[in-house]
Amino acid sequence: MRAPEGIGPAEGRAAAAARRRRLLDRAWTHGWLVLGVLVFALPIWITLVGSTHDAATIGRGEVPLLPGHHAIGNYATAWAEGGGRFRTTAAAVMLWNSALMALLIAAGKIAISLLSAYAVAFFSFPGRMAFFWMIFLTLMLPVEVRIIPTFQVMVDLALINTMAGLVVPLVASATATLLFRQFFLTIPDEYVEAAKMDGAGPLRFFRDVVVPLSVTNIAALFVILFIYGWNQYLWPLLVVNDSSLETIVVGLSKMIGTGDAQNEWNTIMATAVLAMLPPVAVVVLMQRWFVRGLTETEK
């Protein structure tokens, strides 16, 4: 047996230098990444910490970086009475309104876009492409652009200050329709034909095959659409002025008063933290579905 050749002291030094360089590289990239995380996390941390102090601390202009002792009191007040000096609507009510609105928007968008994508992708009827392009064109007309006529329609239908008025104008979704259509086009024709020969009608096929195959897409879209609904500001601001229907995003901004009086930043921040929780929960819960959808391909 002979000692392996070629690993002299010189080569050893070179290898060590290379290792050092790699380490340095990695420290450099990680440093930047951690910095990025901090930049994003800092405002949330400040909010979180701010919600645990008394109103006076923040009122003095301090920005505490360590938690205080008033967490329970602040959250209880925000939850049951409302935040800020006005205490207009309890966070519990606003959270419920927001959750219901976001849920209805997400579910409605998914239901409607599933059906319209199904029609456009699987059926040939006169004007199919015209309908498709009409749906496509509405992409260019977001809520803000059509807000005045939409408001007029809601007034005519007496839907101002109702949950329906809040949800219905936001339900149609060209984006989701397009996404589902693209997915449906990847479903092999043979599935349709096999179902036809088995005697499954269009709705049966939709229920038994198309929807189950779309489950992971539906889950992914649900997350995106729920957060879209949750974050709605302009439309709820306009269509609701009954405080019992207030959504938390709008309510939060209304809490911040202008003028001379002190803002109760502690309860406002507590409300802000509460407002963040449901979207975070949806993302965390649905993440499992994403991963499942990505790792175990059904086709």
Binding site: A194, V209, L213, E298
Partner: peptide
């Protein structure tokens, strides 16, 4: 069918 067309789910 040639690709069997079995429903994957």
């Amino acid at each position: 069918f040639q690709n069997y067309a079995l429903y994957p789910h």
